[in-house]
């Protein structure tokens, strides 16, 4: 096998890990605030899985980078411009419906992507994907059920879910835009071309959103800039101040 571009692999791993880290932190903001106890537990469990997956992705990213950074160093010592997550992951929680819609749109992408990554030529990537896939199957089942329950629920819940879908839709396109990093990953057999996953993704979301009686927006406009770090939304900085403050005030603190 030809030598894999380690810098591209590092970027790919940051993208995987930053998605789960930023979304995991967002979801954890619900802890103690969800509408009912069962949902509170479900959100906290989902956040926990995502942050656990982050430890694998960013741990491997640090290894590949080879500068002695572990997952914690990458999570807590980088600033906004270093993050490589999709913009959708950093979008605010909004109401419960918006949080679950964001989760569903992400879970569907994660389930499709991780299924492909299980056959990655890099067995470390394949191993993490196999582990994460099992967890994401549960996340997707729950977020899809909730989107259907609320979308096809009361007049009020339907209205809110449709609004959430319209608010988040412009952030879906970014998941399927390929760049040089992706080209290098495809060439090395490490990861699939994101653009090639759109049909599988659309099949899942069309099935669920139709069942939820929601209208999929027609616009193909997409906000981009998260996964290459060129431009994040204003929301990520606020998220990081809360997530990173302890390590910034007390560097190297541990317990």
């Amino acid at each position: 096998m030809s030598a894999v571009d380690q810098q591209a692999l590092f970027q790919f791993l940051l993208r995987m890990g930053d998605n789960t880290l930023v979304l995991g932190h967002r979801v954890s903001e619900w802890c103690g605030h969800a509408p009912v106890l069962e949902e509170d537990i479900a959100l906290a469990n989902t956040a926990l899985d995502l942050i656990g997956q982050t430890q694998f992705w960013l741990g491997l990213a640090g290894e590949v980078e080879g500068k002695g950074q572990d997952a914690d160093a990458l999570a807590f010592r980088r600033d906004v411009w270093d993050f490589r997550n999709f913009l959708i992951c950093e979008m605010p929680n909004g109401d419960f419906g918006q949080t679950l819609m964001r989760q569903f749109l992400f879970d569907a992408w994660a389930s499709v992507t991780l299924a492909h990554l299980q056959t990655s030529s890099d067995e470390r990537v394949a191993g993490i994907a196999a582990k994460a896939s099992k967890e994401v199957a549960y996340h997707l089942e729950r977020s899809a059920d909730t989107v259907v329950g609320l979308g096809d629920g009361t007049e009020e819940s339907h209205k809110r879910m449709q609004a959430a879908l319209e608010y988040l839709w412009p952030y879906v396109g970014e998941m399927f835009v390929s760049d040089d990093v992706d080209t290098a990953m495809v060439a090395a057999g490490i990861a699939p071309d994101p653009a090639s996953l759109r049909a599988e993704y659309d099949a899942i979301i069309t099935r669920v959103l139709t069942q939820a009686t929601l209208d999929i927006p027609q616009s193909a406009f997409a906000h981009k800039g998260g996964r290459d770090g060129s431009i994040h939304t204003e929301h990520l900085g606020h998220l990081l101040t809360s997530m990173q403050w302890l390590q910034r005030v007390y560097p190297d603190a541990s317990w």
Partner: peptide, 13 residues
């Protein structure tokens, strides 16, 4: 089924 998630990651309610 009450919830896909329970008191620990490995359990449902």
């Amino acid at each position: 089924k009450l919830s896909q998630f329970g008191s620990t990651p490995c359990k449902a309610q």
